[in-house]
Design a protein around this nucleic acid. Sequence first.
RNA 1: CGGGGUGUAGCGCAGCCUGGUAGCGCACGCGCUUUGGGAGCGCGUGGUCGCCGGUUCGAAUCCGGCCACCCCGACCA
Length: 572
Amino acid sequence: MRASRILLPTLRDAPGDAVARSHQLLVRAGFIRQIGAGLWSYLPFGWRVHRRVEQIIREEMDAIGGQEMLMPVLHPADLWKKSGRYGIPEMFYLKDRVGRDLVLSMTHEEVIAFHASEAIRSYRDLPQIWYHIQIKERDEPRPQGGVLRTREFIMKDSYTLDRDKSGLDEGYTKHELAYDRIFRRSGIRFYKVESDVGMMGGSGAHEYMAPSPAGEDRIVLCDGCDYAANVEMAVSVARPVSVAADQPLTEIATPDVTTIAALATLLGVDEGATMKSVIVVPEDERGGVVLALVRGDHRLHELKLQKALGSTFRPAHPDEIRAAFGAEPGSIGAVNLRGGAVREVLIDPSITDGGYVAGANRTGYHLVGAQHGRDFDARPIDLRHAESDDACVHCGGRLHIEDAIEVGNIFKLGLRYSVPMEATFLDDDGVEKPVWMGSYGIGPARILASAVEQFSDENGIVWPQAIAPYDVWIVPIGDDAIAPSDELDASLATLGVEVFVDDRKLSPGVRFKDADLVGVPLRITIGKRLETDGTIELKHRASGETEVLTPAEAPARLAALVAAAKALPAQP
RNA sequence: CGGGGUGUAGCGCAGCCUGGUAGCGCACGCGCUUUGGGAGCGCGUGGUCGCCGGUUCGAAUCCGGCCACCCCGACCA
C-alpha cells in the first residue's frame, strides 16, 4: 500500500484533553478520532489493527467449535422485558414511528436465548457455541480514556448452550483455552483473575486483565503462587495483630476522639486492635440501620457489603445514628445495643477472638476489651478490602495490587436467561429442561488500547507484530527508491507480508518520525546505499537495532521475522 | 449524579484580570532551494472567539443562562 493513497493524519501534539497514553498516541498517530463523548471513529490504520485483533479472535473461536453469526443492534423491548433486564440505566431506549418500544443492544444474552428457545429442541442439538463480533451500545455514566471506555464499541460475544452443568463447565474450559491463546497471540501482557458476576448474573466468572496504570480495575496478585483476583472478589489474610483474649470490658473516656487514628494514638494501641463501626441504611423495604464492623486498619468493601445485605445502601445520617445508638458518630460500637434499634450487625472475620477497642455508644467514651461472642453478637462475613501486603490465603505469599484494563471476561450464566426466556430442550429422560448457558466477551478495542498502554516509548507506539497495522514500513528516499520499494512490496505480498510504502513527498526525517509514532515493528529504508553498495537497511522498532540487507535477501528475512513474531508466544 | 476544569483556525496555545482593528507556533497552499531523523527563505489560505441573552457608543474580554468536552468520585463490561 502506498502512503500517498491512504488517510494517515498524524499530529505533532496530542489533543490537550487526552490523558491516557493510548488516547494520546492513537490520536497522534492517526488511528482514531473522536466525534463525541465515548464515540470514536477508527481511521484506516486504527481499523486495520482492530480487524487484525478480530481475526485472531475469530480463528481461536472457530478452533473451539464456535459458529460465527450476526445478531442485530436494535432489539424489541419485549425480549428484555421477558428477561427482566428492561429498565436498567445503562441501556439506550427508543421508539419506532408507531410507538413500539425498542432498545439498543448492550449485550446479546436475550437474543441468544430467544434463538435457543426456537432452534434447540432436543438434547441431540446440544452443545452449541455461537458468537458474533458486533456493536454494543451502553449509556455509560462516564466514558473516558479515549477508546478504553466508550458508549459504542465492538465486542466479540460468544455463548455456550449445554445440556447440563458439566456441559457448561466444558464450554467454559474451552473458552479459557481459546482466550489464553487469543491474548497471547495479541502480544499483550495479561492475567486471568477471579471476578464478580456483576450485572450478568450467574455462578462463576473470570476476567482477563491487561495490567496498565490507565486501567479502571484493581487486581490482587500473589507473589508466591498464581492466585489472582479482582479486588471486588479478592480474599486475603490480614496482617496479624496481637490482641489479648479475655480482657475485662472497661469503659474509658475518650473526649473528642472520633477517628481511628486518634483513638489508637490516645490509647497507645495498634489501629488493627480497634474496631471500625460503619453504619449504613440498606435501600430496601425493610428499613432500619445496619452496623458493619471491620478492623480499624481496614477499609470496608462496599460491593462486598452490598452483596451481604442483598441490596444497595447509603451511609446513615448523623440523626439516624443518634436515634439508633444513642450516641454521636465516632463513639458507636456493637456492645450494649438498644433492643431492636439496629437491624443487623455484620463483622469481618479478620476481627478475631481477642478484645478490641470499640465505641461505647456513649458520646465521648470507648470500650476496651470488647470481644465478639462474649460481649456482642454479629454475623461474620467478608467485608473488607484486600490490601497490598496482605497474605495469600492459598500459599501465605505476599499480595500486591495492580491497575488493569479488563480485556475479556467469561461467565457461567447457568439458567439465569434460559428459564425466563423459555430456552428449553427435551432431555433423553423425556423431561423438558432449561439450557445451561455461558457468556464470554472480548473487547478488541481494549486489546488494541492495552497494547499501546503497555508497549510504547518516547517516540510512539511499538505494536506487537500480530496486531500491527502493517508488518513492514518502507521509507524510500529519493525518486529512485520508489521502484525498488514497490518491488519489495510485491515480493513480500506473495509471502503474505503486508507492507506500507511511505512515498509521501516529505523529508526523510518527518517520515522516520511518523514511522516511529505509528509503530510498525519492522522498517526498511531504501536510499543512496542501494546504489553505492547495493544494500537497504532494516530497523527493528522495539529494539532500535538495524540490519543491512540486500534486496534479494530481504523478502525471506522479513517474512521469517514476521512469522516468528506472530507464532504463539509465551506471555512476555 | 456530586466535585473540579476547559471551550479562541485542523492540532497546541496566547489574548480576557484592566472592553476599543483576533494573534503566535505547527499544519495547509504556491514558488525556489533542500532530501538518512520533525529543512530554509518568500508569499499566502483559513476563525459567526461553544450557543443564547444582557450591560455598553463598542464585548473574545464584564454579567446571566444554556450546551459541549475532559478529569476525580459514584456507578459500570
